[in-house]
Simulated scan of single mutants.
Amino acid sequence: MNISINLKKEYMTIPSHHKLFDTIYIGGGTPSMLDTNQLRKLFELFKDMNPIEYTIEVNPESYSHEKGLLFKEYGVNRISLGVQSFDQGILNYIGRKHQTSDVFYAVNDLKKLGIDNISIDLIFSIPGQTIKTIEHDLTTLKQLDVNHVSYYALILEEKTVFYHQYQQGLFVQNDSDLEADMYLYVMQKLSELGFEQYEISNFCKNKLYSRHNSLYWSLEPYLAIGAGAHGFDGKIRYHNHRNLIDYYQTFTKEIIHCEEETLLSDALIFGLRKIKGVNINELNDRFKVDIIEKYSELKKFFDLHLIEIDNGYLRLTKEGILLGNQIFEVFI
């Protein structure tokens, strides 16, 4: 079974006039685990595209100088580094294999190569974490001097180690008050470090927003190839087989034609993740609705000062960001 050949076959099914991308994002799974020969085959697919933003996800322990040189050669200009925590006990608990020294090596080597648009992924509300460990993570982050941070709250997802532990009663989630305290601390400290929060979990310096992720939050189309990949053309969502044998036989597992009601719901849920919010007049015109009238339950959130309209944008307030999931349920 040659997955690289099948990936190329799927890529070749994309019409040439659709192969003009502002962004390329290689991720989901751990692409940096590929060796340099495998990475070269992958990069060869996109060698003539020259996107504005070209990102690859990297785990610190799988980075090497040789891979960095390859990134540079093929025009990769943004790295998303899966750090999760700088506390070794927490890393051991969540099954991550790297050490803090691996992170510093990767960041410093990438900068020497001229790739300085680096994002660090961190997680809070992992069982065993405290405000003190979050403080340590942020102190270490400051030393790295990167320009983007994605800081996520731990979420229980099916088919994960944590979910399996939860089913066995071996996983105890942090209570909501502690999680809220951690999130407020993260927002405050990152602001003090010069980061702008532009999405619920994303912070940057120098306006270096993630162009690619912004497509998801703005309900813009994006193409996807590869096992387990998810794509969206503006009205249709699709995803490929995750199982490699199934993917080798036929790429796509499911195609979902989205109703207008679903697209409106998605536009609001994803759009309200952005700190700026959503342009309410544009959505009203696009979907031929009055959002405030259609979702009358929003009134109580206005009254509680959890949402507001500012310069034509419906957005979460600072208090509302903490209770975003409750607000999003209005649109489901």
Rank of each mutant, 00 (worst) to 15 (best):
E44A: 07
Q38Y: 04
E260N: 13
L39Y: 07
I94T: 10
Y163W: 15
N206Y: 11
I115R: 05
F203P: 01
S125F: 09
L70R: 03
H241I: 01
K253C: 08
V278A: 00
C204H: 09
N281S: 13
E179W: 04
E158F: 09
Y166N: 06
A224N: 11
F162M: 15
S119E: 09
N281C: 02
L190C: 03
G312L: 06
E319M: 14
N50S: 12
Y54A: 03
S191H: 11
V146C: 14
F203A: 02
I256Q: 12
Y198W: 10
R78E: 02
E308A: 06
I155H: 05
I94S: 06
N2P: 13
G231Q: 12
Y25S: 04
N284P: 01
V172T: 10
K112M: 13
S191K: 12
I134C: 06
E10V: 08
L81D: 02
N279W: 03
F43W: 07
M49E: 07
Y151H: 10
T317W: 01
P221F: 02
N50Q: 11
M33C: 11
D285R: 06
S176A: 11
S4F: 15
K72P: 04
K132Q: 15
S191N: 13
S210H: 06
K111G: 12
I280K: 04
G324D: 02
S125T: 08
I79A: 07
Y183C: 01
G271N: 05
G169P: 06
H239W: 12
Y74R: 01
E73A: 08
N117E: 01
R78H: 07
L223D: 07
I321D: 00
L156H: 00
I26S: 00
G231C: 06
H239A: 05
K67S: 03
Y313V: 04
T130M: 07
L264C: 07
Y74S: 02
R211D: 13
V330C: 11
E293F: 13
E192N: 09
H136W: 06
W217D: 10
T23C: 12
L215G: 07
L190H: 00
D102K: 06
E179I: 09
I134W: 03
F43A: 05
D233S: 13
G75R: 07
G234M: 12
L304N: 12
A227M: 05
D145N: 14
H18A: 09
N59A: 11
G82S: 08
N279Q: 07
K189V: 15
L323E: 00
I292G: 00
S16W: 01
D116V: 02
E192P: 04
G271W: 03
D181Q: 15
I90C: 03
I280N: 01
Q168Y: 06
N37F: 02
H18R: 15
V58T: 09
E261Y: 01
E196Y: 12
T250P: 00
